[in-house]
Design a protein around this nucleic acid. Structure first.
Lengths: 396, 396
DNA sequence: ACGAATTAGTATGGAATCTGAACTATATGG
DNA sequence: CCATATAGTTCAGATTCCATACTAATTCGT
């Protein structure tokens, strides 16, 4: 019995605005009558709700549509493609920004490679310039941006605009509320932080394999191994916001020390550094080493193949446990795991089948094909989702 | 965007009835004015809501209460202790039933030891006789039972009244909707099935260490190792209802075969059978063997101590992973783990600290002291919680 | 002992919002 | 060109909340 807030009569309208908007979102073109039929609201209510939605600017009335054969045609209602959200990502060796419209389509997008390192202020300055280019382009297209999301590879506190820790960026307790606001000055919903793996998991839901799975564990293979958990088509963040972190599940009780202080974590055998080292590959930057690893695999290097196979084996151990723990039957692999699909897939499947038979079937394992801008899309998408969840907030 | 139901004006009242009832539940004795102050509802609304609650019979008006110094005293409102729910449990070697009132107090309770084995029909026949004794006693006390819960050590489908699998009972796809109804004929909310570990986890929340933790993993050590996950003071069941099953997390990638088909599961090293075997203890029944184990430990047997220590070590491995996966920082151990607290505690803490330092601190590890009737209380309690969540349903 | 002050609870009117039924608007089809 | 069908609007009625005013019951101060 947590402190439940009392309901007001007005809350009913809040909810029904969202219900009506949801109905419009789910089809290419709706009419009021259709919305009434699908939601169970009366025509009268829908009329009134649609009037409200038109006022928010989220919905547009387009010409008449003849749906059936006889009778008066309805007037078409569609989502306004001139409304959208900014998505951005700071990662170890690149910055990215883009604009996604209400239909979920990426309208503008730009990725800038950059050498690793730099203070939060410096990097956000660069990102700001990038964001300005992107939003200016969107503006020229007549778009209005309602809010934005910024994904970073680390733990965040979205409410306070704080990056708690981002080990691979070298950030710790970075307060960035002001810089976030500066990315999208005056936007109704502001810009909020999110975790890169979580955003990528959501991008997968909306733009990737989400059509096949409602519940899955997304595993992002970067320098570290991150994770995002999608349950019931929603991100499940856990009590303090970082559930799904598979990178530090214990897969080798007597394995090597991990940077987290633990021992035998998945990351120590399946992270990019670990795989490259095991394959005997070195180089200056991580990106270079990964490229070299792929070349070695293509060239048929048995050493490289064995390194990746081992990673797949332990990935299977971790995913077997993880899937049982949260009761999901699907896994989506992104980042370097997606790039290594051909080589890591077989040992992963074998391992999953042997450690948790029947839990994650072979067709429950998928590899992402969203590429580098997954997190950006997820970050923007989650802000759009907020809009869909409470359109009322856009009515002054 | 799942199919959201439209809201009606009446739903506001549904919610506010629950809010008002919640306010009454949280204090020993309330007045209308107090409820208004605490919930934010107006006095007028509270008056009307309380009238409704009185009609459900869940709340009683008791004499006037002088709360402050001056002014008209309020009329006291308390939960009706004559309303309650039946809780029952079928376990490998005992049956249990009891009645819990709205205050959460156990009013009647009875446990019957019985030899393992028997068809679902036979066992539910015995349980029915037990339930009748208990409900008759409650009836004599003037109690009205609104519903009931039956906990079983296995996976259940509460909606269809089905026990999917209960390996230690030897049940599989047992349909028991009729027998459930017969346990409490004509009760407004019927009797529903639940998983034993989940119910025990909830009992811990309401009657045990729940006052210290809002988020924790409960681990039930029985013949198998079960688990229940509490997040935000709610049971988290996962997409298909069996999240939190720590018994089959992989703790030894090259460990022995498990009955689940996997390999190196926690259950193969920390289940009752596994511990007793490792300690070199045999006997006819599991209960006998556990008793012998405790005697051996008390007598200082190094073999027994080592067996339990090993179990604690691997329990730590599993819990380190589990806690990270769902992002909780507390663990409550029940069943034989509670009984073995003195011997298993140190190695468990050591292991947790070494595999996931900082994730589950030492004061995040607690041992249950609810004993055998935890599941019964949890099962009844969850039905009562339903009543508190929607008192409206009890109005004609 | 009695009125002022204080607090509890109820009654009444107004606002928001849904429903249902009646009504208007605009098509198709013989 | 009128019957039929479908879309959308209007309006009265129901529900439930809030705000305010009112009545009820008690303590405090003189």
């Amino acid at each position: 019995m947590q402190a439940e807030a009392p309901g007001r009569v007005q809350d009913v309208r809040r909810q029904n605005l969202a219900v009506a908007l949801g109905a419009i979102q789910r089809t290419e073109r709706s009419t009021r009558a259709e919305i009434a039929a699908r939601t169970g609201l009366t025509k009268a209510s829908v009329s009134s709700l649609v009037a409200g939605l038109l006022e928010t600017g989220l919905v547009e009335e387009v010409g008449v549509t003849r749906d059936g054969e006889r009778g008066r045609p309805g007037s078409g209602l569609v989502l306004n493609r001139q409304r959208g959200a900014l998505g951005a990502e700071v990662n170890v060796d690149y910055l990215a920004a883009g604009v996604v419209d209400l239909l979920g389509e990426v309208r503008v997008q730009e990725v800038v490679e950059r050498p690793p390192g730099g203070s939060p202020e410096k990097i956000l300055g660069e990102l700001r310039a990038l964001a300005r280019r992107v939003t200016t382009a969107a503006d020229a297209d007549g778009m209005v941006l309602l809010g934005g999301g910024l994904a970073v590879p680390g733990l965040v506190d979205p409410a306070r605009g704080l990056v708690l820790t981002a080990p691979n960026l070298g950030w710790r307790n970075a307060a960035m509320a002001q810089q976030l606001e500066a990315l999208l000055p005056g936007a109704p919903l502001g810009v909020v932080l999110s975790n890169e793996a979580n955003s990528a998991a959501l991008a997968e839901l909306w733009y990737g394999h989400g059509s096949s799975f409602r519940d899955y564990l997304y595993v992002s293979g970067e320098v570290g191994v991150g994770g995002g958990l999608i349950l019931g088509s929603e991100l499940f963040a856990g009590p303090s916001g970082h559930a799904g972190e598979v990178g530090h599940l214990v897969v080798q009780p007597d394995g090597p020390q991990c940077s987290c202080g633990g021992r035998g974590c998945l990351e120590t055998v399946a992270g990019q550094h670990a795989i490259c080292s095991a394959a005997g590959i070195d180089g200056t930057s991580t990106a270079d080493r990964m490229a070299a690893l792929l070349r070695a695999l293509d060239a048929g290097s048995p050493e490289a193949a064995r390194a990746v196979e081992t990673a797949g084996l332990y990935l299977g151990v971790a995913l077997a446990s993880a899937a049982r723990m949260v009761n999901v039957s699907a896994v989506i692999l992104g980042g370097h795991f997606a790039a290594l699909q051909k080589w890591i897939g077989p040992s992963l499947l074998r391992s999953l089948g042997s450690y948790a038979p029947g839990v994650v079937p072979a067709d429950g394992v998928a590899f992402s094909d969203l590429g580098q801008t997954a997190a950006l899309r997820g970050a923007a998408g989650s802000r759009l989702r907020e809009v869909f969840a409470s359109p009322h907030d856009l009515l002054n």
